[in-house]
Amino acid sequence: MNPVILYTILSLTAIGIVAAVVIYFVSKKFAVQEDDRIGKVEEVLPSTNCGGCGQPGCHAFAKAVVEAGDLSSLHCPVGGNAVMKQVAEILGIKAVERDPYIAVVRCSGSFEHRKKTNVYDGTESCKIAAALYSGDTGCAYGCLGMADCVEVCDFEAMYMDEKTGLPVVIEDKCTACNACVKECPKGILELWPKGKKNQRVYIACLNEEKGSTARKECSVACSGCSKCFEACRYDAITMENSLAHIDPEKCKLCMECVDTCDVHNIITANVTPEKIQAANEQRLKREERARKKKEEEKLAAEAAKQNTHETPPQA
């Protein structure tokens, strides 16, 4: 054989063998010991690395779960209860069920309702605009409409409605990963329990200005009129800084408050108009009963008063 070819083959083979040996020892020496359950848990996770669980990624979540050995404080919002059940099975621990959540948009100030007061010409980013000033409409609390939330969504679960200029959450795709909530500089997005039969009710306004000012800025702003607050039978609605807020934990989804809002800014999801109407009628009836009762009481009180007047006071 040609000696050149021979030497080439020999030297390459030698280099190969030496390299293989080196790699073998290096891999042994620097092998990372890891609980193999972490890998198993990671496999069932959705591997979106969205950070919705509070951990930097799915691997970190798997590691945290294995280390904690307990699921009470760890939950994968994207995988939901189904995935968490699998995780629990792998680790042989008890699964903890959690209510699914969804992001809701708490602003109804569409183009039509909220007039522009100036033209924003900076970088198309809500965060940058929010740091510069209170916004291009009168309302300092409302959506800036530059889609930071849509951009940050890993699940294509949001889009901007071109007619209103507001973001829309697609119910089936939203995994409640919290990314948009963290991104929004105005705090308009909020995680909300998906609710029984996916029914939800919330007030889509964050304007804390006095009622008259707020309405000047946006025709559907919450003016703090308290009608919904008074209508709620479960103390689920609170009033603060002339702004009503529904506490989803206390809300029984009775829908009786929905029609009290004179600007129709109590937003419902997956609730039929019939149900709202029925709830409203029920409320009106109840209010009527209450009013009658009050009147009767008043009459009774007046009668009692008269009675007391008849007996002269003792000095």
Binding site: G122, T123, S125, K127, I128, A131
Partner: peptide, 12 residues
Amino acid sequence: RPILDYIRLGKT
């Protein structure tokens, strides 16, 4: 390019 816009954002 809106360089300063983003630098301000980074600072905040």
